[in-house]
């Protein structure tokens, strides 16, 4: 091994092999993936997935910027591998197509908090999300999620009466009389993003489980 050029070629060749195998090949196989078109039970044509727009897309930027991905995954493992489905984190596993328009794809590698793949389906209430972001202890006592007070504004109740989206805070979290806590635009957008996270559509490569006919 005293011949430099051979060493050089070997070094380049080995990395090239995995570059082809783990970068170029996946891009070849999955880079041209398209949305799936199907017809649901009621005869409506469903195109899935769809790109996010407006507030939900802005919310995705906050999700990225605040680093939510370091504690929350966005992937549901298959039936029989872990307990993702039993925990209600999704009704089917997620597959490549679910992430078609995500930039960046935030699959996550840690579940310090629960998986959020299907959070929009599991929890669609704005109020719940606002309270939870304002202080997770309100909705989930004992959570280790940090509070995000900077996404909210504490202000005097305006003369026109309390805002419609003011947080309903009680007990130890209540604010003084004459004050209210309202979500800032970032909180609003973030919640729109969370509510848009849903994998409730059938895909040929990952069908939803068929509910057994229970009622006779």
């Amino acid at each position: 091994m005293n011949y430099g050029p051979l060493l050089f070629l070997g070094i380049l060749f080995t990395l090239a092999s995995s570059w082809v195998g783990l970068v170029l090949m996946p891009n070849r196989q999955l880079g041209a993936l398209t949305a799936n078109t199907s017809t649901n039970d009621t005869g409506v044509v469903v195109v899935y997935p769809q790109p996010r727009h407006g507030e939900a897309q802005q919310g995705a930027e906050h999700y990225r910027s605040l680093g939510c991905v370091y504690c929350h995954s966005q992937q549901v493992r298959p039936e029989g591998f872990g307990s993702d489905i039993e925990r209600g984190w999704g009704r089917r596993r997620t597959v490549s197509r679910d992430y078609l328009y995500d930039k960046p794809v935030m699959l996550g590698t840690s579940r310090t908090g629960p998986d959020l793949t299907n959070i929009g389906e599991r929890q669609s209430s704005h109020d719940w999300h606002y309270s939870h972001l304002y202080n997770p202890q309100i909705t989930s006592k004992g959570s280790v999620m940090p509070p995000y007070p900077f996404l909210f504004e504490k202000r005097r109740v305006p003369a026109s009466g309390p805002s419609s989206d003011a947080l309903k805070l009680s007990g130890e979290f209540a604010v003084e009389d004459g004050w209210e806590v309202v979500p800032r635009p970032q909180a609003r957008q973030l919640v729109e993003y969370l509510r848009s996270l849903k994998t409730t559509v059938d895909l040929p490569e990952a069908p939803l489980p068929k509910a057994a006919a229970v009622e006779e």
């Binding site: 996946p26 891009n27 490549s96 699959l107």
Partner: peptide, 22 residues
């Protein structure tokens, strides 16, 4: 490679995850 395929001209969907972990 990672810079180009993830930040400058991001590839589609989960290919990003593949490049990321590679």
């Amino acid at each position: 490679t990672a810079q180009i395929m993830l930040l400058i001209e991001p590839v589609r969907g989960v290919v990003q995850a593949s490049v990321n972990w590679w």
